[in-house]
Design a protein around this nucleic acid. Structure first.
Lengths: 212, 212
DNA sequence: TAGATTGTTAATCGATTAACAATC
DNA sequence: TAGATTGTTAATCGATTAACAATC
C-alpha cells in the first residue's frame, strides 16, 4: 500500500502505454526499452521510467521490458483484473453506439445490462446486452452489485438519473451527458467525456495555426 | 499577437469556464467574480485570473466579470467565431450519434456533410446533414474548403482514411477511432477521443477506493 | 567483459498559488 | 469613502528531465 498520491498525469498516461504495448505485441515484438517506448509515444524515456517506478519494478537493466509482462502489469495497476460490473443507462444514439462498438470486456468491465425509457428498445438485445425498462433501474441496483454506471441519458434527466445511481450505491459514473453532474462533497467518482470540450480545444489550436 | 505559448492546461480549462458561464447566464446571473467562478469549478480564483490574463483584460476591479461578456470573449479565444467547416467521415453508430445529437453549431463548427461506405445510409439525411458516398470524399475535399474532419470510421481503415484527409488539405482531425493516427512529423492537428483511456482512468480510481 | 538500460536521486522547468498595488 | 476585486508580480509547489550508480 502506497502512502502518497500518484499524479493524475501519470495515471492518464498508463492507458497510452498499454495501447502502445498491445500494438507492439501484435507486431510480434517481445521486448522494448523505455527509450523505444518513448519514441513511439513522443515522450522522454525517463518520464516513462519515473511513471512506472510508482507501481513496482518491471524492467531489467541492460535489457528493457518484456512487452507482455509490462502490459499485464499496467493493466493490473489500472484495475482491469477487478472485473468491475457496470450498467449502461440511456440507450439513445450514444448509448447504443457504446453498446454496439465499445469493447467493455477489453477494459476489464463486465457490462451487465442497459436501461432505457423507450418501449421501442426495451426488451431488445444489442451485442448480447439486454435493455431493460428504466423503471426497473432502482430495483435492479438494489438486487445486484454494480460498481459503475455509464450515463448516456438526455441532458434534462442527467442529474435526476445520477441521483438514482448514487442513492443505490453506484461508486463511479462514466458521464456522457454534456453537463457536470458534480456534487462537490460527494464521494462518487465521475469521469466526464465532454465531447464539446475536446472539440473546442481543437478549434483553439486550429485558429492558432491560421493566425500564423 | 502573442510571442509565447499558452499552456495546454489553460486551453483545456477554457471550455469548462465557458460551460459554467453559460449555465450562470441561463440562471439569470449577470456578473460573477473569479472567486465565485472558482467555487463553481472547484478551483482557485487566481488560477482563473491567471488563465484569462493571457488573452486580455475582461474584468473590472471591485466588480468582477460580466457573465455574457466573458462568455463571448472566451468563445472568441476558442475560435468559435471562425465558423470552421467540417465533414464527418464514417456514419456508423458513433458517427450517427454525433450527427443526431452533437451540436456542432454550438461549438462554432459548420458541419457540411457526412460520408459513408454503406449504400444503406448513403443518400439519407440526419439532422439536416446529407450522407454522401465515401467514393466522393476525395473529390469533395478538393472542390470545397474544409478545415476539419470528424473521423469515425472503423479501426481497420482509420489510417488510410486519415491519409486521404491529409492529402486533401484537411488541417485538423477529431479522431474517434480508438487508434493513434499520428505521424510525428506531420503538421496536421489531431484531437483524440479515446473512450477506453477515459474508462481505464476511472477504473484505476475505482480500484483505488476499493483498496482503502 | 563491454554495452545497454534500468530505477532512483538531483536539477530544472513550468504551473499553481499567494500576495498586493491599482482602482472601480 | 470603504469594500471588493481585478491584473500582475513573486513565492511555492509539483512535474518533467537529466544524471548516474547499479547490474543484467
Amino acid at each position: 500500500m502506497r502512502y502518497y498520491k500518484i499524479s493524475d498525469n501519470t495515471i492518464r498516461r498508463l492507458p497510452r502505454y498499454l495501447r502502445t504495448l498491445e500494438k507492439l505485441r501484435e507486431q510480434g515484438e517481445t521486448r522494448i526499452s523505455s527509450y523505444g517506448l518513448g519514441q513511439l509515444l513522443g515522450i522522454g524515456s525517463s518520464r516513462i521510467r519515473q511513471d512506472l517506478s510508482h507501481f513496482g519494478t518491471f524492467g531489467v537493466q541492460g535489457y528493457g521490458y518484456s512487452v507482455t509482462a509490462l502490459r499485464d502489469a499496467i493493466s493490473k495497476v489500472l484495475g482491469m483484473d477487478h472485473k468491475f460490473s457496470a450498467v449502461l443507462v440511456g440507450c439513445g444514439n450514444i448509448g447504443k453506439a457504446l453498446l454496439c462498438n465499445f469493447d467493455f470486456a477489453a477494459c476489464g468491465i463486465n457490462l451487465m445490462t442497459g436501461f432505457d425509457v423507450s418501449s421501442e428498445v426495451v426488451g431488445t438485445t444489442h451485442n448480447g446486452i439486454e435493455i431493460k425498462s428504466m423503471e426497473e433501474l432502482d430495483c435492479y441496483l438494489t438486487e445486484n452489485h454494480i460498481d459503475l454506471a455509464v450515463l448516456c441519458v438526455p441532458k434534462e434527466v442527467a442529474v435526476s438519473t445520477a441521483d438514482i445511481l448514487t442513492r443505490n450505491g453506484i461508486k463511479a459514473i462514466w458521464n456522457f451527458t454534456n453537463i457536470d453532474i458534480i456534487e462537490p462533497g460527494s464521494q462518487i467518482l465521475v469521469e466526464n467525456v465532454h465531447f464539446s470540450d475536446s472539440l473546442l480545444a481543437l478549434s483553439y489550436y486550429l485558429s492558432e495555426t491560421i493566425m500564423d
